[in-house]
Design a protein around this nucleic acid. Structure first.
Lengths: 350, 350
DNA sequence: CTGAAAGCGCTTACAG
DNA sequence: CTGAAAGCGCTTACAG
């Protein structure tokens, strides 16, 4: 066991009685190495507990074998809790990267701050994954610049016609359509929408458009007063519902653009003596783990985060290999739970 | 704007009319650089959009400015969801690292597999943080080896007398004591414990010992049949409660060693017609976000994950700087919610 | 199949 | 305060 100094490929070469080049070849799995030689080298590696220096190999080979994940946090969100939906995405991206032999570097960024995506420029990673909601229009130029300077990057978010980058998102429009259609099947006619509805927040906007389309399909008109802006936090959902109440307008269902908003709205209704689903039906979006635990369990739209993580990583790897990659839209699946069911006969869980 | 070839410190030097060494010095914030020179260099850096190559600087300087987080996942856990408590720790560790200027490399490992902590050996990181529960005795030797070979590492988990490494954990014993004392104040005498109680799982064991100690303090004896093994998953909690039921033993409260176990037990009780808290009181441990959303809200023990993340990172940085670091025990705080309150007068949330 | 040699882009004594 | 030079530990043509 070597004690002093770092073990390098020269030490291995010496021990195995070959040149350092051959050690390097053997360790990288080159076919140009004799089996017997390879075995001797491996034995030396094991004996000295040698590990290839990642920095040296990355510097020389010009790729790092690591991916960077930039997670944008909403500065207004509770410091201690990250949006559970993104946490779930983070988990699936980490897993997908590992399966494909890549390390994952993680960075949190404030969306509002002057964030830097220099993980590729500084050669810390071969490419980056952008995750988090925020004002899309505010980052569009930055995205454009990133792509222009050759940075490989993929983004989680709405798939738009003119976007400069590759993105993977769920079919928010269909999801929104499904929720509102479901509400109407339950007899609702005055459905409130809690969430921003502008091109600044394309995901929410698509959900809103699906909602409107469903209304129109049923011959109903949208009522502007039934839409209240909200960002994806409980606090914001709580406030949005109070705003809705303050408008003095009647509503028989609430479609929250995210589960967090829905949970906040649920609290607000509780505080104001409104019962879900007896007085008002409620649905969210995302199917975060909490959604099935709130009381009553929350109807929502499932986005397959496992699949999303894999597609995101695979797309990024394609880009890195110089292969083409395409933006992708994942299916959105309505999950009906008690919060949106009128009939009280169904009181049994599960 | 330079198009072809990578921008290096030589390009900056050329543009700024100084030597490459000076560029390097200026960029590392050396005091040995004239202010005017520094400004010229900065201008060149901005103009060419230069970024220091991390691999080259790490190779040369022998430190990487990144920390590695090894997250052990229980292989039996649901593939799609990471234990929420660890997710919360992950968030706080990521934040703490970023605040101190370190990047964070994340890796998931199966505890049962032959995991490798070679993130330091291969120079990808300056040190590693170990996170996740699992059979402590099974990893003890590996830990010892890591420490022996000079790898800087800190671990989240029970602080034990003879551990080879530095760890940060919460005061599980006091936490367990507080839960059981609280149960007894509510009039309970036959308190079941769901979770492993052996030195293989020191955290659960300490919670169990706190539980026993509280019983003894009240002059009660422990009843072995009231303890059922369980690992930290909902599934396992569900099964453990059914095992308890199958024993045909009476109990008036259930102390689950983790919130996930408690939530599983809650489901099982629901399926068997037992009402919480009317028939049985229930408490968990961890205070994961879901705990306050289940019905009824779950009494639990809060571990301050924000603080934990900071101490873990600070300890690791001390080790990296060659300074001494000490294992630390964080306070455990009982959070009482409806699931453990006998009185039904308190029906109002919050 | 193997070796000698160049070089990736920095940091840091060393000398002024 | 600045520059010339060595060298971190690899990978990869190039030549055999």
């Amino acid at each position: 066991m070597q004690i002093k100094g770092k073990v390098t490929s020269f030490d291995i070469a010496h021990l195995a009685g070959v040149s350092q080049s051959t050690v390097s070849r053997a360790l990288r799995g080159s076919p140009l190495v004799n089996e017997e030689t390879r075995r001797r080298i491996q034995a030396a590696v094991d004996e000295l507990n040698y590990k290839v220096d990642k920095n040296a190999s990355s510097l020389r080979a010009k790729h790092t074998g690591t991916l960077a994940l930039l997670l944008f946090e909403d500065p207004t969100a509770d410091e201690s809790h990250i949006n559970p939906f993104f946490l779930s995405m983070l988990g699936s991206i980490t897993r997908a990267s590992a399966q494909r032999g890549y390390d994952l570097l993680i960075s949190f960024q404030q969306f509002s701050h002057d964030w830097h995506a220099d993980y590729a420029d500084s050669k810390k990673s071969d490419g980056i994954i952008l995750l988090g909601y925020g004002d899309y229009l505010a980052i569009r130029d930055k995205l454009q610049k990133l792509v222009n300077q050759g940075t490989r990057c993929v983004r989680w978010g709405a798939v738009l016609a003119d976007q400069p980058d590759i993105s993977v998102g769920c079919d928010n429009l269909s999801g929104g359509h499904a929720v509102t259609t479901h509400f109407m099947e339950q007899g609702c006619r005055r459905i409130a929408f809690l969430g921003d509805a502008s091109s600044h927040y394309p995901e929410f906007f698509d959900r809103y458009r699906g909602h409107i389309r469903a209304l129109n399909d049923a011959g109903l008109e949208a009522e502007p007063l039934l839409q209240v802006n909200a960002e994806s936090t409980e606090r914001s959902g709580y406030d949005a519902l109070e705003t809705l109440l303050a408008r003095g307008i009647t509503f028989d269902a609430v479609f929250a653009a995210s589960d967090l908003i829905a949970i906040g709205a649920m609290r607000a209704m509780d505080d104001h003596g409104l019962k879900v689903p007896d007085d008002v039906l409620l649905a969210g979006f995302d199917d975060i783990p909490m959604a099935s635990f709130v009381n009553p369990p929350l109807t929502t739209v499932l986005q397959d985060t496992n699949l999303a993580g894999e597609i995101l990583v695979d797309n990024l790897l394609s880009l890195i290999r110089g292969q083409p990659a395409e933006s992708a839209m994942l299916p959105a699946k309505l999950i009906v739970r008690k919060s949106s069911l009128r009939g009280r006969e169904d009181k049994s869980e599960k």
